[in-house]
Amino acid sequence: MIPTLPGVATVAQTITLALSPIFMLTAIGQLLNVLTGRLSRVVDRVRDLERLHPHTTGPEHDRHVWELRLLDRRISIINASLFLAVSSAVMTAFVVASLFVATLAKLHFASAVAVAFILAMLLLIASLVSFMIEVRVSLRAIHVRKDLLS
């Protein structure tokens, strides 16, 4: 018996099914772009403060130390968010590949594909929550100091 290949309609249907995860990959790519941009700005600010740190004393020194601690926390949160977003992208790519493998090999593991997609979504949600936390943490450094307002 000669194995039959899936028809064009079957492949077209699989491509249609894979479009949603592909759009999700595009969105994750944009999120990664935003996160790496924020990380870059935080690292630049850390480098600036590290240059100033040895030359400061008193309240100014304390303010620099406080900001360095805050920036260190932001770096950790952004790194966690980046890890979660990349993990989500990997799971999403796995979903797309699995859809095609299942179609071409006529395998029936829809449950595994669904679980992988759910995991990808949960990872993306966790990344977005981390991003939201980082934004909230960053706002603490942006407020104008009270001593400058009086």
Rank of each mutant, 00 (worst) to 15 (best):
A18I: 03
V65L: 14
Q30W: 11
L35H: 08
V90K: 01
V42M: 11
L70M: 08
F109V: 04
V137I: 07
I77G: 00
H143P: 00
V42I: 15
H61N: 11
G37A: 13
L104N: 10
F109E: 04
M24N: 08
R45L: 06
I75D: 04
A85Q: 13
I2D: 14
L35E: 14
T4G: 04
S150W: 01
E60W: 11
E60M: 14
L49E: 03
V101K: 10
S150I: 04
E67W: 10
W66G: 10
A93P: 04
P6D: 12
D48F: 03
L107V: 07
F109D: 04
V43R: 12
T103L: 09
V129W: 07
V95W: 01
A126V: 04
H108R: 10
L149M: 10
S98G: 12
G58L: 05
V129P: 03
T10D: 13
I142H: 03
G58W: 06
S138P: 02
S150A: 12
T56Q: 09
A80S: 03
P54G: 00
I77W: 01
I77C: 00
I125L: 13
S76Q: 00
A116P: 01
F131H: 15
A9F: 03
D48R: 14
T4L: 14
S98F: 07
L71E: 01
T103P: 07
V137M: 08
L17D: 13
H108L: 05
L39H: 03
V144E: 06
R73D: 08
L70R: 13
R45V: 11
L31N: 12
A110H: 07
P59E: 10
S138L: 09
R51C: 01
T56N: 06
S98E: 08
S81F: 02
H64A: 11
V113H: 01
R136M: 05
R45F: 05
T103G: 09
I125Y: 06
A120Q: 00
V90P: 00
S81W: 01
N33F: 14
V90H: 02
I75G: 08
F23S: 11
I133K: 02
E50P: 00
N79C: 03
L122S: 03
I75Q: 08
T57K: 06
A18S: 13
P54M: 00
A80T: 07
S111P: 01
P54N: 01
A27Y: 05
S87A: 09
I22A: 14
A12K: 09
S20D: 06
D62L: 15
R38E: 09
